[in-house]
């Protein structure tokens, strides 16, 4: 894709403008689909019907919701801080979308194949924290402020197990580049890192540690995206709605888009680190299934599976308390992540 665009435009700035466009289109389509899927799945799990009036089986529901949000007036709280209040949703969405720069959709399409890709992703996550803080504070509403403070405290704490569990697989693979992660896991499902990665039979010793690392990564990214059971920041029964309480119209939609964009981004990270990225599970047995276009399909299908698990958990588990949240993080996940890191390091040295 890079080479192709260079051929057309030369080493021109237009290239850098075109590259993010497919990812942006995917984020918008995904957010629309995921909101509908979330409502349909929740309805199915709770034995309800769910949206079924707009379009066939209600598939136009979220499209109509967006049309409604476009038409809405942007209501401005009287004593809110005007500049920061306007700025915050854009900071949040930009930070969420910046993470897509390193998602390897296919061997030919990636925003930029940084050799520090994973490190970049974790740094960008902390940018979104700024936006949440600003939104919470500038709304001049105590519930918003509480929501903002809670989500920041939560994200900052859960960054540690996220980074540690990702580090353990980085140690095994010996790279931080997202494309290299995918290339290393070529050759079918048995070479993916949740099964120990490529290598002889002795690599099976690593399987329990890598599997638990994948699990820790999934749980802590769940907390970082503020999803149930870790949705304390927007606990609707206590805080009404969290940081986006005072926002209306498209400003509110920005927060919504950011949340869903982040859901897919972290799923993409888990997919790349542990589940082969864009690799087909059949390896090179059927070469057609590993062509660049099919790679996009595999990456999206794996990512969507993890999004589905996130939605599934949301409608299955109740919300944890604040002290339970911190206990899970500091007393269980971080020590376990350290044990994994240590054990894998020991194995790699020996």
């Amino acid at each position: 894709m890079d080479q192709f665009l260079i051929n057309i435009f030369g080493d021109n700035i237009i290239k850098y403008i075109i590259i993010p466009v497919p990812a942006l289109i995917w984020v918008s389509l995904f957010a629309l689909g995921a909101v509908l899927a979330e409502r349909k799945i929740s309805a199915f799990m709770q034995d309800r019907i769910g949206p079924n009036r707009t379009g066939k089986w209600g598939i136009l529901q979220t499209v109509m919701d967006v049309v409604k949000l476009f038409q809405k007036e942007f209501v401005f709280p009287l004593r809110a801080n005007k500049v920061l209040f306007r700025m915050a949703p854009f900071v949040v969405f930009t930070a969420a979308f910046l993470g897509y720069a390193i998602l390897p959709f296919s061997s030919v399409y990636i925003g930029v194949d940084l050799n520090l890709g994973l490190f970049y992703f974790f740094a960008i996550t902390s940018l979104g924290v700024m936006g949440l803080l600003l939104a919470g504070w500038s709304s001049n509403n105590k519930y918003s402020l509480y929501g903002g403070l809670r989500s920041v405290a939560q994200i900052v704490s859960y960054e540690i197990p996220t980074a540690l569990s990702a580090l353990s697989v980085v140690m095994v693979a010996g790279t931080l580049s997202m494309q290299k992660f995918c290339v290393l896991q070529s050759g079918g499902i048995q070479n993916w890192y949740f099964l120990g990665g490529p290598g002889g039979l002795s690599r099976l010793i690593m399987v329990p540690f890598l599997l638990s690392s994948a699990l820790i990564l999934f749980i802590s990214t769940l907390a970082e995206t503020n999803r149930t059971p870790f949705d304390i920041p927007e606990a609707d029964s206590e805080l009404v709605a969290g940081v986006h309480l005072e926002y209306s119209g498209m400003m509110f939609a920005m927060f919504f888009f950011a949340e869903y964009a982040q859901m897919f981004a972290v799923s993409g990270i888990i997919t790349t680190l542990f589940f082969g990225g864009w690799q087909s599970p059949f390896g090179d047995l059927i070469p057609f299934l590993n062509s660049p276009v099919m790679q996009i399909f595999w990456f999206l299908i794996k990512g969507l599976f993890f999004v589905f698990v996130q939605i599934w958990l949301r409608w299955t588990l109740p919300r944890v308390r604040v002290d339970q949240l911190m206990t899970i993080c500091w007393k269980y996940m971080i020590p376990l992540a350290f044990v994994n890191l240590f054990a894998l390091g020991l194995y790699l040295v020996l």
């Binding site: 520090l116 490190f119 740094a123 996550t125 403070l149």
Partner: peptide, 20 residues
């Protein structure tokens, strides 16, 4: 990237947290 991680994600968030 370290600049973003340390200064924005760490120090500045802590600073604003304290102010708020």
């Amino acid at each position: 990237i370290t600049q973003i991680m340390v200064y924005i994600g760490g120090i500045l968030v802590l600073l604003i947290f304290g102010i708020m």
